[in-house]
Design a binder for these strands. Structure first.
Lengths: 220, 220
DNA sequence: TGACTTGTGTATCTTTTGATACCGTCTGAC
DNA sequence: GTCAGACGGTATCAAAAGATACACAAGTCA
C-alpha cells in the first residue's frame, strides 16, 4: 500500500548505477537533482501503489519491474496500460500540473523498483532540462496513443477478436508461445468475465489455434 | 477538405482583435510570432479538416465554432471529443513532436474559424513561452481525461445509460431542454446503430423522460 | 406535382455477452 | 493427508445489442 509512500520502505538514493538504467536523463545537473530529491521504493508483487480517487503528490518512475494500471467498476476491471522501466504513469504526471485525483489503480505485477520524485519538481524541471521535457511530452503522447488504441478496440471489436489480439501481443512482446495467464486475469485485462473467456478460449482450442493448460496457454 | 490547407481559403492574419478571443497567450512576443506565422482558415459546416491516416504538419487552434473529432470503422463511428474555441486537438499536437499520422477524423460541425500554425513551431515555443507550454500541457492533460472518461463509459456502461448521460450532458451545456439531434447522429456519437437508438429513445418516451420529434428531442 | 432524401417506428431474428450454478481438478499450506 | 482456495469446463437461461426489412411521414428540389 502506498498511502504512506513517503514514510515506509524507502531507500535513500546512493546507487551510482541508477543512470545506467535510466538513460533518458543525461544532463549531469538533472541527475544531481534527481539524486537529491528522489527516493527508491521497492514494491512486491500485488502491492497496490495508486488507488482510484487518491490524491497524488509524487511521480513514480519505474526502474525495474512492471506496474499494471487499470480501472475498476464494481466487480469488473479493465486494463489501461503497463508501466515498464524508464516509464511513468499519466495519473501522476497530470497531478503534478493540476490538482488531481487518480482515475485509475496501479498495482505492481512483479517485484518492482521505483524512483519516487516529489510532484512539484516536475513542472520546474520541465522548463530547465530539455531531456526532462522530452520525457514528459513523450509520456503524454504515448500514453494517449495507447489509450486511443484500446478505446478503438473496445468500441468496435467483439471480445473474441480482442482476446486474439491480446494473445498475439503477449506472444510478440515475450517472444514465447507459452503465455502464463489464468482465465480470470485475462478476463480482467479485457473487462469481461471468466466464463466468457473460458468459452472463447475453448473455441480457439477447437480451431487448433492454441492448447489450454492450467495457468498458461500454449499458442500453436 | 484540408488536403490543401496551406493553399486554399486562407486569410492573412491582420485582425488585431484575435487575442481578445485567444486569451491564453498574453506574452507580446508570442503574439507577434503567432501573427507572423499563423493564418486563418474558415471552414464550413461538414468540412472534413483531418482524416485518419493523414500526416499532419500544422496545428489548428479553434477561434470560433466547433470541430468534432471521431473515429471511424467500416460503417460505424464514435465520438472522441469536440474542439471548441481556444482549444486544439491531440492529433496535431502529437504530430508536432513525433512523426505521426492522425488516428482520428475531424469535421467542422458549424461554420468555424481556425488559427493554423506550422507544426515545427510548437516545440520551439514550448521552451520559450510559459503560456504556450501551459497550453500544451493543458491540452494533453484534458484530452487524456476526456478520453479516459469516455473509455470508462464504453467499457462498463450499457448503451442505455450512455444515451441518458449524453442527453443530460447536452441539456446541461446548452442549457436547453430541446436537443436538436437525429437518431442517426446520436448513434454515431455513441458508436452504435440507428435502430438501437430509436428503440432506447422510445423506451425513454414511455417512461416519460422525454418526447420525441422529428429532428429533435424534448426533455421533460 | 412528383421524385428523392432524411428521419422515424417497429417487427423479426440472430448473435453476443453476461449471470448463475455446479462440478472436478490441481496446488500449496498446515 | 486433508483442506481451502484457485483454476477451469460446461450447461442453462436471460439480457443486450445488432442485422435486416418494410412502412410511412416530412422536407427538398426540380
Amino acid at each position: 500500500m502506498l498511502y504512506s509512500i513517503f514514510n515506509s520502505n524507502l531507500i535513500m538514493l546512493t546507487a551510482p548505477d541508477l543512470f545506467q538504467k535510466l538513460r533518458s536523463f543525461p544532463e549531469p545537473e538533472l541527475q544531481k537533482e534527481i539524486l537529491k530529491h528522489g527516493k527508491i521504493l521497492k514494491a512486491n508483487k500485488g502491492d497496490v501503489l495508486i488507488k482510484e480517487g487518491q490524491h497524488l503528490d509524487f511521480l513514480p518512475i519505474v526502474i525495474k519491474g512492471q506496474i499494471r494500471v487499470y480501472q475498476e467498476k464494481e466487480d469488473r476491471e479493465i486494463l489501461l496500460y503497463y508501466v515498464g522501466p524508464e516509464q511513468t504513469c499519466m495519473m501522476s504526471l497530470s497531478s503534478a500540473y493540476f490538482d488531481y485525483k487518480s482515475a485509475a489503480n496501479g498495482m505492481a505485477i512483479e517485484p518492482t523498483e521505483i524512483l519516487v520524485l516529489p510532484a512539484y519538481l516536475i513542472a520546474e524541471w520541465q522548463l530547465k532540462y530539455p531531456s526532462w521535457n522530452k520525457f514528459v511530452i513523450n509520456t503524454f503522447k504515448s500514453r494517449y496513443d495507447e489509450l486511443l488504441n484500446t478505446f478503438g478496440s473496445v468500441a468496435f471489436k467483439p471480445i473474441q477478436g480482442r482476446v486474439k489480439d491480446y494473445l498475439m501481443e503477449r506472444m510478440k512482446t515475450t517472444n514465447s508461445k507459452k503465455i502464463p495467464v489464468s482465465h480470470l486475469s485475462l478476463a480482467n485485462e479485457l473487462g469481461t468475465t471468466r466464463v466468457v473467456i473460458s468459452r472463447i478460449l475453448k473455441q480457439f482450442e477447437k480451431e487448433k489455434l492454441l492448447k489450454l493448460y492450467r495457468g498458461y496457454i500454449q499458442m500453436i
